[in-house]
């Protein structure tokens, strides 16, 4: 499903080149639930950007669903994101002027989907996260947990092959955080592939497999012993 091979990525700050990811390789199989764990500044956000096709590596290969994405055009990357990847952000990233319904509908407007199917999908996914009675509310009228559920509905409506969650509970109290984690685990059981990025070991422990990022390098422990097989 996700295959990262010898990924290298650096940022230039002023005149100094700062390597962020050094020779990172990772393989995520279909229907897997992988947690990427690391302290802030470890490079896990950059890794998440690359996996999410928001950024491209300086060198190395990224094969997503059998497709090389490291030399795609900007628009092609947009298309891959729209079709294959669903993001759950720490900041929810809902559009404040749109209602919950419209937020869930928004990505579908960039797909070739008939209005009736669009409507059907939005209603189905909003029901799935239990917010049908709140779908005419704007994000500011919803609690943090509810906003994150709208964001999850937005992901589900696009029917992506991979769900990328970046600190999904980082902005929530523990009760809503647990609710969101339960939903995410439910999605995994339903067959979704999930990559979760966190600095919280308790969150990471709920995943099937953990991967550690430290100083731009990746190491695997626990369930899978040994490094990437390639």
């Amino acid at each position: 499903m996700i295959r990262l091979k010898h990924i290298y990525k650096s940022y230039t700050i002023g005149t100094v080149e700062v390597p962020v990811l050094r020779n990172v390789s990772l393989h995520v199989r279909p229907h897997e639930f992988v947690a990427i764990l690391g302290p802030s500044g470890s490079g896990k956000s950059t890794l998440m950007n690359i996996i999410g096709c928001l950024d491209i590596p300086d060198s190395g290969d990224y094969i997503l669903d059998g497709e090389y994405v490291d030399n795609c055009t900007e628009d092609k990357l947009s298309e891959i994101r729209g079709v294959k990847i669903g993001f759950i952000f720490q900041q929810f990233n809902l559009l404040p002027d749109l209602t919950a319904y419209e937020n869930v509908e928004m990505p579908l407007l960039y797909h070739r989907i008939s209005p009736s199917e669009r409507h059907e999908r939005v209603i189905r996914t909003i029901e799935q996260v239990g917010l049908k009675d709140r779908m005419r509310h704007k994000p500011s009228q919803l609690s943090g947990g509810q906003q994150q559920r709208v964001a999850i509905a937005r992901v589900l409506a696009s029917e992506p092959s991979i769900i990328l969650a970046d600190e999904p509970t980082g902005n929530l109290d523990s009760a809503s955080g647990k609710e969101i984690m339960d939903i995410i685990k439910g999605l995994w059981r339903d067959g979704h592939t999930i990559v979760l990025i966190t600095h919280d070991i308790n969150i990471a422990n709920q995943a099937e497999r953990k991967v550690y990022v430290h100083d731009g390098r990746l190491s695997e422990k626990e369930i899978y012993n040994g490094m990437e097989n390639h």
């Binding site: 999410g52 900007e74 628009d75 947009s78 993001f87 990233n93 928004m106 990505p107 960039y110 937005r154």
Partner: peptide, 16 residues
């Protein structure tokens, strides 16, 4: 800017 970023993240192309 943020709205544009969100739209692009969920699949909006430049033309959109």
């Amino acid at each position: 800017t943020k709205e544009i970023g969100i739209r692009k993240a969920v699949g909006a192309k430049r033309k959109h």
